[in-house]
Every structure is written in C-alpha cells, then in structure tokens.
Simulated scan of single mutants.
Amino acid sequence: MINITSNELIGLVSSFIWPLTRILGLIAIAPPFGNTTVPVEVKLILGVMLALIVAPSMPPLAAGDPLSLTGMMILGQQLVIGVAMGFVIRVVFGGLEMAGEVIGLTMGLGFASFFDPQTQGRTNAISQFLVLVATLLFVTMNVHLSMLSALVESFTSIPISTSLTMGFSFQRLAIWGEQIFIYGMQLSLPIVAALLITNIALGILTRAAPQLNLFGIGFPITIGVGFLMVGLVLPYLMLPIETMFRQGIEAMQSLSLQPPHAVIPPR
C-alpha cells in the first residue's frame, strides 16, 4: 500500500502547477501557439504535456502550499516570466507587421485593411502576407522547437524559487521592444526606397506634362511597382528573417542574466 503524506502531495502539486503556469504563459503569447485560431484545448494539452516532461527533471522545490499567499505570488511570478519570454518572440513578428504596414502605406494600400483577430486591430494585406511567410519559415526552420527548448532551459537559468525574486532583467525586456522599429525599417527600406524613386519620377512627369492625371496613373503605378518589388525582394528575406528568429531566441535566453547561446538547429 502506498502512503502519501499531505506534505508530499503538496510538493507534487507544486512541482507541476508552477512549471505549467510558466509554460502556459509563453504558449498564450508566443506565435504560432498564441494565435487565437489555435483552440484553447490544444494549448492546454500542449502545456500539460510539456509540464509532465519538465517536472520530473526539476530540482526539488522548497515546501510551499500553492494556495498560500507565498504560493500564489510564486504562481504570478511564473506567469510573468512565461509571458515575458513569449513577448520576446512576439516582438519579432511585430517587426514584420510594422514592415508590412510601412510598405502598404507607401504603396497606397492604406484603405485596403481588414480586421486581424490576432492583434484585435486593423492590418493591411502586405502585413498579413509577411506574417504568414514568417510563420511558415518559423515552422520549417524548427524555430518553434528552439523556442520550447529555450523555455525548458529557463527552468535551470531562472529556477523556481520561494524567495520571490524574478530572476530575469526587466531592463533587457524593455530594451528588446525597440527591435520592432529596427526590424520594421530594415525589412521595408528597399521597397520604400523603390517607391520613393517612383514617386519622384511621377512628380517630374507631372511637371513635364501637367495635362496628365496624376491620381489616375499614380496609384496603379505605385501599387504595381510595390507588388513587383515585394516579389523581387521576397526570396532574399529568408536570411534576415532567420537572423531575427535567432536573435529572438538569444534574447529569450539573455533574460536570465546568463550568457545567451543560439539554439536554432541547422536545417
């Protein structure tokens, strides 16, 4: 007959609930798991499976009741850590969305927008196209596995502690937010430059032939040049996007105040 004391039962529950909270925090935010089109049941099953894998390999935790004040604070701590790690990857996709917004506005597609269930806001067609391409690369390059691997490693670099210390740098997380603007401008700059040259040429043409209807010929030309440049630049975006993903994984690891190392496996 197996006898389990109340302290042992509390320890088993704690060693499962606290890692599960961190894992679910990342899954709720990080793409592609955090997409609203992914059923909640799938997210819960994935989180429980990862928690069952991680919990036995974790070092013994200090005794603590999950329903006590300290236990609830540790629960909130793990949720914040998981959400922060998911936010790091979400910033990468935010940079892609910003690049699509800049390209779309420069092309004249400011009115060609629709509701995005992921961000609960307005987005244009170019932005959604870039996000879909990045999501396919995210899966084909096994970056989602690298992200989950970094999450599992975080239980060693940012251990669960009853001391209520967060164990990661909020400053690095805040500084990482600037990458949205950096990635957005870097990816959109070639197409924006081509459209700028196109607009300058249209301006010179309008001055040379004032009888031409700029609004009648300008929009089709800028939209056509924009789509042409997107088609020409798209094959060369794979390397920059892969670099963005690698930097995102490194940023996840650098939150733990330990030297980061890339974990994206070779294809």
Rank of each mutant, 00 (worst) to 15 (best):
I126A: 01
I200F: 09
I204C: 04
L24G: 06
G94R: 00
A201C: 11
W18P: 00
I182P: 02
L173T: 04
S254E: 09
G25P: 01
L61V: 05
F245R: 05
P39N: 14
L52P: 01
V230G: 01
T123D: 00
I4S: 11
G248P: 01
F181Q: 12
I81D: 01
I264N: 06
L205G: 10
V13P: 01
L164C: 08
A262C: 12
T243I: 12
F170S: 09
G226P: 01
L151K: 03
A174P: 07
N213E: 15
L46P: 00
Q258S: 11
T222M: 03
L132C: 10
N199H: 10
V133T: 14
A55V: 07
I74C: 04
E101V: 07
V143E: 05
F170Q: 09
E153H: 07
L187K: 02
I103V: 15
Q179E: 14
L255M: 11
L12A: 13
M49Y: 13
V143T: 08
M85V: 02
V192Y: 02
S188V: 10
G216R: 08
L105V: 07
T206W: 09
G34N: 06
P59C: 08
A112V: 08
S57R: 15
V263R: 14
Q247W: 04
P66E: 05
D116Y: 00
N3R: 14
L79H: 07
L212T: 11
G25Q: 04
Y236N: 10
P210Y: 12
Q247K: 13
H144F: 07
L52M: 11
V131W: 01
F155A: 06
F16K: 04
N124A: 00
T156K: 12
I223A: 03
I2K: 15
A55D: 02
V54S: 08
S154V: 05
I10A: 09
G216N: 13
M73F: 07
S6C: 11
V91M: 06
F227M: 11
V143S: 02
G104F: 03
R267P: 04
I197N: 05
L75K: 06
L44I: 14
L75S: 09
G203H: 05
A209Q: 14
P59A: 09
G95M: 05
I45R: 10
P240I: 08
W18E: 01
H261R: 14
P60C: 08
S14M: 08
F168H: 06
K43T: 07
M252D: 08
L44R: 02
I27L: 12
M85D: 01
G64V: 13
L205W: 01
G34K: 03
T106C: 08
N3L: 14
L148G: 07
P240D: 09
Q247A: 10
V131S: 01
F138A: 04
M147I: 05
L148R: 02
I2Q: 15
S169T: 03
L52N: 08
I217R: 06
S154G: 10
E242F: 03
A193M: 15
I182L: 13
M229V: 13
P259Y: 02
I81H: 09
A63H: 13
